[in-house]
Simulated assay, not measured.
Amino acid sequence: MLNRCSSFEGSQPPCDIAILETVYVQDMKLVEGKLHKRFKSSSVKLKKSREWFDLWVWQIWLIYFWMKVYHLKN
């Protein structure tokens, strides 16, 4: 599914995005590291950033599920 977006030049979102959910976490660095490790193969290769992922719908729902579980635990 890579390369659905038109511009991969900067560090800004490579295409239109929609924020589906936000969650506050105690250790952002730990959580971000886990997400990067889990979705490494879906990373969008920008010149200045590796902060974006090209995910399948089932992967987005998996993250959404993880966020709901996190909310229930905290």
Rank of each mutant, 00 (worst) to 15 (best):
M1A: 15
L2T: 11
L2A: 11
L2V: 11
R4W: 05
C5R: 14
C5P: 09
S6M: 14
S6P: 08
S7I: 15
S7G: 13
E9R: 09
G10M: 02
G10F: 06
G10L: 05
G10A: 08
S11G: 15
S11A: 14
P13V: 10
P13F: 09
P14N: 03
P14A: 03
P14L: 02
C15E: 04
C15H: 02
I17Q: 00
I17H: 04
A18T: 12
A18M: 11
I19D: 06
I19S: 06
L20T: 13
L20S: 13
E21N: 09
E21K: 11
E21W: 04
E21C: 06
T22V: 01
T22K: 00
T22A: 05
T22E: 00
T22R: 02
V23A: 01
Y24H: 12
V25F: 12
Q26S: 09
D27E: 12
M28E: 11
M28V: 09
K29M: 01
L30K: 03
L30P: 00
V31E: 01
E32Q: 07
G33A: 02
G33I: 02
K34G: 01
L35R: 07
H36N: 10
K37Y: 00
K37S: 03
R38G: 00
R38W: 02
F39M: 03
F39C: 05
K40R: 06
K40L: 00
K40F: 04
S41A: 05
S41F: 03
S41N: 06
S43M: 08
V44Y: 01
V44E: 05
V44Q: 02
K45R: 15
K45C: 14
L46R: 11
L46C: 14
K48H: 14
S49Y: 01
R50F: 05
R50N: 11
R50T: 05
W52L: 11
W52N: 10
F53V: 07
F53H: 12
F53D: 05
L55A: 04
L55M: 07
W56V: 10
W56R: 14
W58H: 12
W58P: 03
Q59I: 00
I60Y: 08
I60S: 11
W61P: 02
W61R: 11
L62E: 15
L62Q: 15
L62D: 15
F65T: 12
F65V: 12
W66D: 11
W66F: 13
K68D: 05
V69G: 12
V69Q: 13
Y70N: 07
Y70G: 02
H71M: 10
H71F: 08
K73T: 08
K73M: 09
N74W: 00
N74P: 01
